[in-house]
Amino acid sequence: MIKEDCSTTCALSRKDFVSDQQVKWCPGCGDYAILSAVQNTLPSLGKKKEDIVFISGIGCSSRFPYYMDTYGFHTIHGRAAAIASGVKMANPNLSVWEVTGDGDSLAIGGNHFIHLIRRNIDLNILLFNNKIYGLTKGQFSPTSDQGFVTKSSPHGTIEEPFLPGELALGAKGNFYARVPDTNPKFMTEVFTRAAIHRGTSLVEILQNCVIFNDDIHEAITSKETKEDAQLILEHGKPMIFGKEKNKGIRLNGLKLEVVTIGENGVTEEDLLIHNAHDEDPTLQLMLIRMSLPEFPVALGVIREVSTSVYEDVLIDQIKTAKEKTKYKSLDDFFNSGDTWQVK
């Protein structure tokens, strides 16, 4: 049945993006806040509803498209990046969002993840990172901390985890942001930035799995500690954080360090100014790697660099080829070259 709506004729609101499906995540799941933040983000993008597509792989997060009243495709494990790439290349006018998780994108879909980022196709990736496999009921993931005890690692994991941001920048990524699922307003801001950025935008969302890995991001997100645990980055602004707004990040030789303004002669002038637009990713990588307890965790848009976009070049090549071709039609092409007439 075709819904009578005003999607193309009037301003959209959050409710235009709410589908008729009952949301079936576990009560208390961080996904609810993310869904709501996405639904709040879309009306401001100026995109028609029919031009928005959500593509997901497999995992709890990948049910996301069912809850969005846009075009959506819930695909197979790990392959959302490749399928979303095809959607965007087929119709570059679409706003394409890939919804994925740490297992979907960094384990089974790792190959597609890095190549999508390397190609810089204009997609927005929302990577729900809860450091656990939820849908299969509690195995460690590629982002689980070393030694983490799960059903499939009763003696603790042996592996080093990935940092999604580090991986993305290693794959030549141009947009990387990190946000916690506990701050709806912040999520909406970052999602908007990701949508506006042309090229592949990766947003890592620190998402809480209430059943299998509850409070995994608690040290970063709890009300009591978050001001000291989070460094919220803004391009062009000094890196200040802490309850008293008196702590900051300074470069000491080739290392970052936490300093307190007013102590040991440190002033705001000594602090690093965040440059998300720096093409050289060195400092951005250092920020991505900062971890508790020595450092706060860097949040916000860490890297945002403009460069050529895959499908722009593809379309341009096609346009040029069409202009330059000597063939008037397909039949003309078939009939060209070495042919002979049989009478």
Binding site: S56, D69, G72, T75, N93
Partner: peptide, 15 residues
């Protein structure tokens, strides 16, 4: 029905 066609927004998948 393909993305870009107004009024036909829908979700499909492997389930």
């Amino acid at each position: 029905a393909t993305p870009g066609m107004p009024g036909y927004e829908h979700r499909i998948g492997g389930l």
